[in-house]
Amino acid sequence: MQTPSSKPGLDWAAIAIWTIATLITATFCCILLDILWHGLGQLSWEFLTTAPANAGRDGGINSILVSTGLILLVCLSVSIPLGVGTAIFLAEFARGNPQFSRWVRRSLDILAGVPSIVFGLFGYAFFVQRLGLGFSILSGGLTLACMVLPILIRAAEEGFRAVPDGYRLGAASLGLSRWGTLQQVLLPSAMPGLVVGLVLGIGRAMAETAALIFTSGYVDRMPGSVWDSGRSLSIHIFDLSMNVPGGEQQAYGSALVLILLLIVINSFASWVAQRYQLGL
């Protein structure tokens, strides 16, 4: 039975939750509005298609956009197959060995929480120096892949675990091969989880500066290949606002582009996933 005294307590909790939610949303909106307010004036077709000049104060961000795209491409083409593969292993094949999967999962969770600068130093020592890839988009993309993998694997694994057991049972009772079932049935239905992982991973990769400054580098020239050094949008924004007096306006413009890019990529990912999931 509910006592009258418990009611105000409930309300307080509700008020606290609403206040926190409102504060968080408001903060986010403030940041977004600030970037929109300052950045919208910068945004133009020319801004997107011309090369940066005068340390980034003038000109546009065409080379930065290409570098960012290439870094992301390298990162995803390595991390998606590897991440999904590991997730499949953990969720579908390692079920008989819970001890091992628990150990792997714990390691991944720790890795996911490691500060990006640590990945940056690792990438610098391993990809740039050890493997001799130098300051290059390849080094940067691979470093980001290491950073994104734990997030991707954990989310993808959740995706596979969320697949109804009825599919597995149904496939097994039809005598279907494991590989075929995986490819045709489990993968599409695990898509929501994969997309969540992908969106989180892309978000982290696009926002990254510390791990990239030591690997993909600072060069703002248009890259000719993934062997060239290239400056990502996030580093460009960081440099303009921190090291270049008078670079603020351009920094806002670049930040707006970054946010728009994230929105576009995320919507595209959800759209693809939805089509996939319906089996179309």
Binding site: Y167, L169, G170, S173, G175, V185, Q277, L280
Partner: peptide, 17 residues
């Protein structure tokens, strides 16, 4: 399993066409 088909309680068509 090809010779012995099975139908479960909850319909479980694959998420395909």
């Amino acid at each position: 399993r090809r010779r012995v088909g099975m139908i479960l309680q909850k319909p479980n068509p694959f998420p395909l066409s």
